[in-house]
């Protein structure tokens, strides 16, 4: 470690006392300023939480939390208004589940290929493409879903409209792929070569080594990758807003149009009277969304920590 305020003894001879005192003061000031900036991440995260609570919790003075969570009727402008967000929650659940079901096998397969099988030239070509995918803005993905994918889904499943939870989920799966691929690949690479060698030396084939040594060894890292992918899918807004269909009924099938929580906030906030009941209700949804992604991320972090202590040496 570096030493605090390490100053050589020879400095005494050349510098006057006052100059040295000024230096020390400057160091102290800078140090405090840097410390304050270091805290900023905590401040912002807490700030988000406090603000969401301040703006969102008052809605529970009007409607009970149970009714809010499990009610299926969201009529913010009728008289009296009712706020039940189960519709949105169910939609979020559908979309997240299906997108994860698609993205996990594809993403982990791709990661395994890149980390274990692909020649390095190919890997160096594919990885930028995956990064490219991560860079495409969500509104552009929404556009693709809206104009290209939804007609396809409509004709394949013979639906009234192609704007459905399924369509949104397919687009979301693409958007969560980059993080699943890159975190899983890192996890696979962290598996020490000793284990691969031991497996080969026992006469296992390359695939058997991948399947029975590398993937089990990277499992917690892969699990974390999946959690992070899930977190993205839950929080993604534009794509589901444009593609999921926005229907206000509890979706019973993924091919129905639906409105996930993020889309509900995005489409409602523009019309909500500032500080009014609907405004508060949307912030309350935001609060729940925040807590959901927070817990998913915390779990992913825990799992990743565990990975570091296992197959890696």
């Amino acid at each position: 470690m570096l030493q605090r305020g390490a100053s050589p003894a020879t400095a005494d001879s050349g510098l006057s006392m006052s100059l040295r005192r000024r230096w020390r003061l400057r160091e102290k000031t800078i140090e405090s300023w840097i410390f304050l900036n270091g805290l900023l991440a905590v401040v912002v995260l807490l700030g988000v939480l406090i603000l969401l609570m301040r703006e969102g919790l008052p809605v529970f003075l009007y409607t009970s939390p149970l009714k809010f969570l499990f009610g299926t009727r969201w009529y913010p402008v009728s008289e009296p208004p009712t706020f039940g967000m189960l519709t949105f929650f169910a939609a979020t659940l559908w979309v997240t589940l299906i997108s994860t079901a698609i993205a996990v096998p594809v993403g982990v397969g791709c990661a395994a290929y890149l980390a274990e099988v692909a020649p390095s030239k190919l890997r160096e070509t594919v990885k930028p493409v995956v990064e490219l995918l991560a860079g495409i803005p969500s509104v552009v993905m929404g556009l693709i879903g809206l104009l290209l994918l939804s007609p396809l889904v409509q004709s394949i499943f013979n639906l009234n409209t192609g704007l459905s939870g399924l369509t949104a989920a397919i687009m979301l799966s693409m958007m969560s792929l980059p993080i699943i691929v890159s975190v899983s690949e890192d996890a696979l690479r962290a598996v020490s070569n000793e284990f691969r060698e031991a497996s080969y030396a026992l006469g296992a084939t390359k695939w058997e080594t991948v399947r029975h040594v590398c993937i089990p060894g990277a499992l917690s890292g892969i699990a974390a990758a999946i959690m992070l992918g899930v977190g993205r899918a839950i929080g993604e807004t534009m794509t589901v807003l444009m593609v999921a269909g926005g229907a206000l009924a509890v979706p019973l099938s993924p091919t129905e149009p639906m409105m996930p929580m993020t889309a509900a906030i995005a489409s409602g906030i523009g019309n909500a009277v500032r500080g009014g009941l609907q405004y508060q209700a949307l912030f309350a949804i935001g609060l729940i969304l925040f807590l959901m992604t927070l817990s998913v991320n915390l779990i992913a972090d825990r799992v990743l920590e565990r990975q570091k202590r296992k197959f890696a040496r």
Binding site: L52, S138, I269
Partner: peptide, 24 residues
């Protein structure tokens, strides 16, 4: 705590940042 906050900041949905910006 700071490292955990950074990690979680990255995972906050963009719409929630929108609400934060609107409120603050």
């Amino acid at each position: 705590l700071i490292n955990m906050a950074i990690l979680n900041l990255a995972g906050v949905p963009s719409i929630v940042y929108g609400l934060f910006g609107l409120g603050l």
